[in-house]
Design a protein around this nucleic acid. Sequence first.
RNA 1: GGCGGCAUAGCCAAGUGGUAAGGCGGCGGUCUGCAAAAUCGCUAUUCACCCGUUCAAAUCGGGUUGCCGCCUCCA
Length: 463
Amino acid sequence: MTIKIFNTLSRKIENFTPINGNEVKMYSCGPTVYDYAHIGNLRYFVFVDLLKRILKEAGYSLYQVMNITDIDDKTIKRANEKGVDFHEISLKYEKIFFEDLEKLKCSRPDLAPRATDEIDFMSEMIQFLIEKGYAYESSGSVYFSLASYPEYGKLSKLDLSKVKIGARVDVDTYEKESPGDFALWKGKKDNEPSYKMPFGEGRPGWHIECSAISRKHLGEQFDIHTGGVDLIFPHHENEKAQSEAFCGVKTVNYWIHSEYLIVEGKKMSKSLGNFYTLRELEDRGFDYDSVRYMLISSHYRAQLNFTITGLKAAESTISNIKVFVQHLMAGGEGSVDLVDMVREHEKAFFDALMDDLGIGNALSHLFIIINNINSADPLKVNAATKEAVIKAFTRFNTILDISQLEMTENKIPADVNTLAQERYQARQDKDYSRADELRGEITEMGYIVEDTPKGFILRKMDE
RNA sequence: GGCGGCAUAGCCAAGUGGUAAGGCGGCGGUCUGCAAAAUCGCUAUUCACCCGUUCAAAUCGGGUUGCCGCCUCCA
């Protein structure tokens, strides 16, 4: 299947074609591990997970590398505040980061190198860039010279001659040749970790980390580079400049960025108090599936307005899906045939995903299948239809990966089933007080019994 | 000041030329001994506003308004 995807470089939706046949090499900007990931970070990682799953569904083999930024202003600042080595901070939050990913069913990258483990290669790149005149040393730091690289600005569509330097951030210009030049290497400062290199003692700049790690582990040219939209400028623009100056070729074919997540209509910030982490949502009683569903179900290029109301809606939605699944698994012994309908929407689901990850459109086909089966009554569809739905939903779940979509047989403990049988008999005998008593016992055991004209259906209550 | 994006029901949201998907919520009904659950149906003559192109516009062009993002280390 051909995937269509929006490329930030062209600002157009393009047909995706890997460099090397069936193999896709992808680099994803990873976390700075200095604190708990917030829901906006997590939105990005869920998007990356969705993209990976769709690539695999389309038949590609995938190799993904994601950097772990363990040395930068934030990890150092946090370490100094706590009076500990910065590794102590970064290792702690790296571990928590991967736990969060796992909770949200985001598959791990194939390789996740830490910046501090790749400093030798960064050094090689920096030395080369200095030798070739792309970079210069000044006051102990090394800067990339924008003047040496005319392609600069193509990714972010910024015309530096028209940009107001320092419109939002103060820029130190005294030691740079030009205000737009950015640091490859930051000269040693007190209270900061440093490494001795031929061009001086210090620590790496942020952008060189991604250039070095992607070059080393994916080669000079690879297929996909992902990040949040906020990274387009300056991070990816800078990274692109360094990498292409070093490699002498176009290094990335598809730049793919996910939009911001906002909270209750406003940009998330600690001062507004609308800063959610996964564990805070957990404390409020939401489960991971609800969070995953909410984050995955809106288009990656649209701003996602995260609200508690919305999260509750997501919870209801997937809970309803689960009820349907349980009904279907109890049915399928009738004669109504809807196999063609199911197959048609199964195909449409994946067609939508291949079109620039059209998840909203795709999901509508899942619900259309549910509505059509429900209209016919899950108890009345034939075995072939039931099988078709199981097959379709199982495939859907290779993308969505929520427990509510798992097509497992209703596993009802024998004692619960016996109670339900007794209750059924009691109802036949019109001994309703006994029936209610038995229903109470079944509820106690965590099951819901539903009466139908033909008997009863048992299903497990949500935990 | 420069660059870019968005505006579809109570809320979320798909749709980019052929007559408004889907989800949540709400309302009404069905089933039921009752409660609950479940289920069925209904829920935008209309896509921010104005002008234009077209047989045909939410979709294309021009303009207006409003909101948002980026402009040098924030996913």
